[in-house]
């Protein structure tokens, strides 16, 4: 927080609300690699049919370990102390996401959680996007009680969606930006469905069907079976529904929401450090904070 304003972030359209330091970046990269391995376990180590009957030990271990990995990453990202402004924004945007999520009720792939996540990741940077993905899904799980073995996987995957949105090229603006975000939203919708399918694939099909995993086959063979499975069961229907929701929401609401988020980012003035100064100097240094406490008169009625 005491870091001076960085000229790199002079561009008001993008801020790094949650700056990821080099150490946190290493931890994040390691955690992403571990998470990816946990998602891809069916391809890397096809379970034997006997093990499947006992639900397999390794994936159960992953359900317990992935939360630990997430906790470590989030702790490391907040290691330098999160700016209270970023923290409050994180909480409030996660609340909006959690409130948006039940609108779709998870039916036919109408998934309303991603569009705000993508836009916020775009405006507030990759670190914030990752944290928002995790916190949103966690809060939403607590609120609508979707807590279950899938939650850590969903948190990780949603974190990736937010992280990726923050890493998109920053130069693009205007209509091209919306087009870029829509493209990313469609891609993210399919990728999310893909990894969530991959993790659960051996359990969903069970052994012995046309689309089941074959322990004897090699990686390429199983990958092809999985592609067939995911294309027939979800990509065509559910994931398309999710991609369409993303595209429609980003096109119709994207520009207005982006403007709103950028206005908030400007008013939060993340690059202005909050300093506690002696009494005499107080008004000038805390102006960024006091300015933000004014409520708009529009809602007074």
């Amino acid at each position: 927080m005491s870091a001076p304003a960085d000229p790199r972030h002079a561009d008001p359209r993008h801020v790094d609300a949650l700056r990821v330091g080099p150490r946190a970046a290493v931890v994040l990269a390691l955690a992403c690699a571990i998470g990816l391995a946990m998602f891809c376990w069916p391809l890397l180590s096809p379970p034997e049919p006997e093990a499947m009957a006992h639900a397999g030990d390794a994936p159960l271990l992953f359900v317990l370990l992935l939360p630990v990995v997430l906790a470590v990453v989030l702790a490391e990202m907040s290691e330098g102390g999160i700016d209270p402004r970023a923290l409050a924004l994180l909480g409030v945007l996660a609340a909006v996401n959690a409130a948006l999520r039940p609108l779709g009720a998870g039916t036919a792939g109408i998934e309303t959680v991603f569009f705000l996540l993508i836009l916020a990741g775009r405006v507030f940077g990759p670190g914030f996007g990752f944290a928002l993905g995790c916190v949103s899904l966690f809060a939403s799980a607590l609120l609508t009680a979707g807590v279950g073995p899938w939650l850590p996987f969903q948190m990780m995957a949603a974190g990736w969606v937010g992280l990726g949105a923050g890493l998109l090229p920053r130069r693009v603006a205007g209509r091209a930006e919306i087009a870029l975000l829509v493209g990313y939203g469609v891609l993210a919708a399919y990728a999310f469905g893909f990894v969530m399918n991959l993790w659960f694939w051996p359990y969903a099909t069970g052994p012995g069907t046309e689309l089941s995993i074959d322990p004897a086959a090699d990686l390429g063979e199983n990958a092809r079976t999985f592609l067939l499975y995911t294309l027939t069961t979800s990509s065509a229907g559910w994931d398309t529904g999710r991609a369409l929701t993303n595209a429609v929401a980003l096109t119709t609401l994207g520009p207005a929401v982006l403007a709103t988020l950028r206005r908030a980012a400007r008013r939060a003035a993340f690059d202005t450090p909050v300093a506690f100064a002696p009494r005499a100097a107080a008004p000038s240094t805390t102006s960024a904070i006091t300015a933000s406490t004014h409520r708009s008169p529009e809602e007074r009625a």
Binding site: G91, A95, L143
Partner: peptide, 9 residues
């Protein structure tokens, strides 16, 4: 931030 989210929702 989670507590904030749960309270704000």
């Amino acid at each position: 931030s989670v507590v904030v989210a749960l309270t704000v929702a």
